[in-house]
Amino acid sequence: MTELLQQVINGLSMGAIYALIALGYTMVYGVLRFINFAHSDVFMLGAFVAYYTARAFGRWGFVMGGYLGGIAILLLSMTACAVVGIVIERLAYRPLRRRSTLTVLITAIGVSLLLQNGGQLVFGVNPKAFPDIFPSSTLNLGGLVINSNQLVVLGVAIALLSALHWIVQHTRIGTAMRAVSFNATAASLVGIDTNRIISFTFGMGSALAGAGGVLYAMNYPSIEPLMGNSPGLKAFIAAVLGGIGSLPGAALGGMLLGFVETGVSGTRWSTFRDAIAFAILIGILLFRPAGLLGRNRVEKV
């Protein structure tokens, strides 16, 4: 029983991070209809920005280890990632707006390779130890072990998801985002600046990825430039699983994947874990081709 509860908690914290990254994939897909392969590397950048700011804070003599400092680092790193995301979109994707999505896809792969390999040059290749940016302690509830970081991860993730939901559903710019996602041409006809909305979407998605990166690094404090590959791929699966383009779908997909992974990990099937994640994805897509919460687009002839 304790073991099961333990796995549930592990699954929750893993799933929350997947959900944050998956949201970025799904938002970009919603407005631009292409898979932003560089997203997982923005995630990596988030962790490194936090690493370097935390070190700088330490050097400048700020009091470290408080919640305030942690939140400041998190926000800084989200902002940095948002800027990077907007710049990437502006330089690499916007010139290709009218080209086929495959062309943009290859460019995205190029950007991803650039960030990974550039990261190896700039940050070095060896794993770095990520400092405790939030006060860290281990809670033991009758055999049930919870790291306080896991709770912080969960809290931050829920806060960010609610904020995102509010922005998309209840603000002007969120409404504009939904309009662009629904039909970009029609949106521009009613006076929405689609380029601005797309930039904004990229910024938000990248900020979420950055936050995901920081949270991931808190949970697994060993960061290196290729750290985005594996969670990026999982989050991508999560986004498609939930129905790419659907925000609640991405959150649901992320959580589901987190649970499945931790569920499989403790068993003798653990080495088949990635294969099982994909098998579930394939299974769901075969029965619900648009994912769990995705809407089926009616084909117009």
């Binding site: 073991e3 333990q6 403790g266």
Partner: peptide, 10 residues
Amino acid sequence: DKDFRAQLTA
């Protein structure tokens, strides 16, 4: 992999 908690718990 970065999460070994499941394996270690087992």
